[in-house]
Design a protein around this nucleic acid. Structure first.
Lengths: 231, 231
DNA sequence: ATAGTTAGTGTATTTTGTCAACTAAGTTAT
DNA sequence: ATAACTTAGTTGACAAAATACACTAACTAT
């Protein structure tokens, strides 16, 4: 820093979001089609420039992007990793602060309604989406899903992928689908009880042609808790 | 993004480093005294603007700062968290991409030689340094040390705080000092053997007035490995 | 009633962690 | 020389925890 009064040229600064939901098909990521250059017409993560006049901080910028794309107001939002280099954007040296957001499918004001071709949920396999992505967004997606899978192993994070009322069997199924392996029912319930982050909603039951299941909700303020050990 | 061809005003972009070493006194963090406004004369984390003409990417910028301050060339360097807001720097909306670096005390070309008053190692207690820090750097230090302590629990990360040859007892002592609790010798050695990341340097022994101890080194390419379970 | 299905719990077995003792190999004091 | 001391490194008994698997419960459909 020889003379910082003389301003250095500044890099481009953006936030990009990996918005994840779990559907029947598996994990899906929300993508948008770019309407301007560079990469016009191609798929990219929802994101945008930081508006230094409107956004009070990074998280506010990420929230704004999320609201604009999905209408979700109070999501699970976590900073992921920051990518910055001379080459990742043809317009010049750029920084992307990336965030992961988990949302329950039913929480959205359907941003990907059938007739829209500029927003789409895209299935993820092997931490990769099926379509090619602009910039280094494929790397960001991979980073997000690696982090997600690791964290699921020792946290209550998957509740954010479910609606507010759910059964323990449903919760277990979310863990199993993300981890890609079976979990023992009794071990799973023991762990959930220890962590003490859900409570039964008395009277509310999920009914089917079998024994009804108790419906649970997250205890106030305990939505993300880390386990001592892995599942 | 209404018209991104018209450039938005860009935030200030910097990298800041939490450089950690372990001395007899405990964990210490390297601080520098600022020579220019804002906060001239006060302590801050080593850091600097991203030079978009010289730095190829964020990690290169962090490496440059580390080299300038400590002379260390091949450190353990890990991206931590990115802080950005309208208010954290009086000069305007600014982004700080923070990194943690672990270095062995003896690896440095003494940046904090006795006669220098602009660089200093400062003891950490309770994830806080003893002196007040500029900007939001106290928050960055806290974030770094929280991450460090968590990660020590399930990774081989502490080797980076030791010189290249070390005994298992020395390695265990590093874990114990960071975690602040005793670890059972036999359990510790079992875990280290399982992870298989160190190997004995045959013939080299640490000698004292007792039974000599085998000296170990990190196996090539296995310097940072995660455990299945916690220590 | 009975069969079928999923919810929810209990238990035996195996695995893992804890604690403490033990042997090993050197130095130092007598 | 030898006994005392110190730290290195290993072993085994016991307690605690994870795992697998079976069992009981509560409903619907036939």
């Amino acid at each position: 820093m020889t003379n910082p009064q003389m301003p250095y040229p500044r890099p481009i600064a953006t936030v990009d979001l990996v918005i994840v939901a779990l559907t029947e098909a598996g994990l899906e990521v929300l993508l948008t089609r770019r309407d301007i250059e560079p990469y016009a017409g191609e798929w990219a993560l929802p994101g945008g420039w930081i508006h230094i006049d409107k956004d009070i901080d990074l998280e506010a910028a990420a929230c704004r992007v999320l609201r604009e794309k999905t209408g979700v107001e109070t999501p699970y939002l976590e900073q992921l990793e920051t990518f910055g280099s001379a080459g990742r954007d043809p317009r010049g040296w750029s920084i992307s602060v990336s965030y992961v957001s988990l949302i329950a499918t039913n929480q959205m004001r359907l941003p990907a309604a059938e007739h829209r071709t500029d927003v789409a949920w895209t299935a993820v396999t092997d931490d990769t989406v099926a379509v090619p992505l602009s910039f280094d967004h494929a790397k960001i997606v991979k980073s997000a899903l690696t982090r997600l899978r690791n964290k699921v192993e020792y946290s209550t994070l998957p509740v954010h992928l479910l609606p507010s009322g759910f059964t323990l069997t449903e919760l277990q199924a979310v863990y199993e689908r993300i981890l890609g392996r079976r979990i023992d029912k009794s071990a799973f319930r023991k762990r959930i009880a220890e962590v003490d982050f859900v409570e039964p909603v008395f009277g509310e039951m999920r009914r089917a042609s079998n024994r009804p299941a108790q419906i649970y909700r997250v205890k106030a303020g305990r939505s993300t808790i880390l386990f001592d050990r892995t599942l």
